[in-house]
């Protein structure tokens, strides 16, 4: 049962991920990214992290993907080698063999490391109630939490400052 669920999730994540990086149509690519992210949310459920799954859908699929679609629409791709008349097209991938080599090499290194490293099989279940997670985040990791909140604020201010139309 668990293996089947893993297989489905893994196939969905990898398939949609591959389409997200290979699709020539950017809108499609962003939507395939959304699929991959939703599959990841399912993976979180299988890994007994329900709150994380909820956040994944809320933030990523709801926020990030929407933002990206806006980005695609706000920019003009006609001068970038895309097919004429198609606003959102990307041209052919550049140096695909280099990308493939680095991807394969990194995967190979990590896989080899995993093969060499004996890892125990985890316990069947993990009590991952939102209450405990909340206590942990606002208890042990309070400083990190506050730092992240400052970072988010700074990032959003920076994003506004960067994208704002400045005086000529």
């Amino acid at each position: 049962m668990a293996q089947l669920a893993f297989g489905l999730v893994a196939a969905a994540m990898l398939g949609s991920g591959l389409l997200a990086v290979r699709s020539r149509n950017l809108v499609h690519a962003v939507l395939w990214l959304a699929v991959s992210l939703i599959a990841t949310a399912a993976a979180y459920v299988l890994l007994s992290a329900p709150f994380l799954a909820a956040m994944q859908i809320l933030l990523y699929t709801g926020g990030v993907v929407t933002l990206m679609l806006f980005g695609v629409m706000l920019t003009d791709h006609r001068h970038d080698g895309g097919a004429p008349g198609r606003l959102s097209n990307d041209s052919a991938p550049q140096r695909p063999w280099l990308g493939a080599f680095f991807a394969a090499a990194l995967f190979g290194v990590v896989a080899a490391a995993l093969y060499q490293t004996p890892l125990p099989v985890p316990a069947a279940a993990l009590d991952a109630s939102t209450a405990r997670l909340g206590e942990l985040v606002l208890g042990d990791h309070l400083v990190a939490f506050e730092a992240i909140s400052v970072l988010l604020l700074a990032a959003l201010l920076g994003a506004v400052a960067l994208a704002r139309k400045t005086d000529p």
Binding site: F6, L14, V21, A29, V30, P96, A103
Partner: peptide
């Protein structure tokens, strides 16, 4: 699975010509 997903992202970062495409790969 995580490593494979990361590798896909690396492939996308290196091959995308469009900056938004690169951002998508980074999300992966």
């Amino acid at each position: 699975l995580g490593a494979a997903l990361f590798a896909l992202g690396v492939y996308g970062v290196l091959t995308r010509r469009n900056a938004i495409g690169v951002l998508v790969a980074i999300e992966l």
